[in-house]
């Protein structure tokens, strides 16, 4: 089974390491992952207004491409995942969006949300399995205390994202355990980092990011991990770096022993 991989813009530029480590790891795990050809930007934020159609089209193109492959669209960036998954839900349940998007795109066959959008972490959980992952770890991160930072985009709205329990998620903690480290649960792990507001009102993002980092640190975390380049930017550049912030793929690569090749 092949996963059609959608990296998204930022993973090709400012968040190259998130992408590169992820690709090294899928190789180490023996997964068949192929990048989508000629992909376009997903739009970065899901347009919530019910009359937004054009802004969803590039996501539909991506989803439709994956349908033509094995129907499994693999995402890594939390924002891309959120946009693609929610647009896909619209194509399933919103007849108006489905009709107009299909009319516009003039596809050979109507697209009605057939593709399954799978986040990299979901792939690890559902297709690799924590026990298998554990078995492949060569450098267990023993004694490292890691706080999972979920943010908003992976979890909410949970009725659509269906990623994990929106208030008490465990997937990243399970991931941390599988690579041999110790998860630190802290109450701000699903709070917002300030998102796009940091462009215009950096003070807000600074407050939000520091609340998250302080909470992680106070609960004993040595580092927090994220799947989102924007969260990474806010936590790292807006926050006062009381704890280190890393992409989860980096520590995965470390655990699998493929970080430095």
């Amino acid at each position: 089974m092949r996963f059609s991989y959608y990296p998204g813009c930022t993973l090709k530029t400012k968040a190259k390491e998130l992408n590169n480590y992820a690709l090294k790891c899928v190789e180490a795990l023996g997964l068949d992952v192929k990048e989508i050809e000629e992909w376009q930007c997903c739009g970065a934020v899901y347009p919530q207004a019910r009359d937004e159609i054009a802004t969803k089209l590039s996501a539909v193109r991506t989803l439709n491409y994956a349908k033509g492959e094995d129907g499994k669209l693999l995402t890594l960036c939390s924002a891309c995942h959120n946009v693609l998954k929610r647009v896909n839900e619209d194509m399933i349940s919103d007849a108006n969006v489905r009709l107009k998007a299909n009319n516009y795109l003039q596809l050979e066959e109507e697209y009605a949300g057939e593709t399954e959008v799978i986040h990299y972490l979901e792939m690890l959980r559902d297709y690799v399995g924590w026990d298998n992952l554990k078995a492949k770890v060569v450098n267990p991160l023993k004694g490292v205390k890691i706080g999972a930072y979920y943010g908003c985009l992976l979890l909410r709205p949970s009725k659509v994202m269906a990623f994990d329990n929106p208030e008490n998620p465990t997937i990243i903690e399970d991931f941390i355990k599988a690579i041999g480290a110790t998860p630190v649960v802290y109450p701000y792990r699903n709070e917002c980092c300030g998102a796009y507001v940091s462009l215009d009102e950096p003070a807000i993002s600074k407050k939000k990011s520091n609340a998250i980092l302080d909470s992680a640190s106070a609960n004993g975390a040595d580092m927090v991990i994220t799947a989102c380049p924007l969260c990474m930017y806010n936590l790292k550049h807006m926050g006062d770096s009381v704890v280190d912030v890393k992409y989860f793929t980096e520590i995965l690569a470390e655990a699998l022993g493929v970080k430095e090749d």
Partner: peptide, 11 residues
């Protein structure tokens, strides 16, 4: 109360 994680009942 599993669906009311915001109140930290299980935590």
């Amino acid at each position: 109360l599993d669906k009311f994680g915001e109140y930290a009942y299980n935590e």
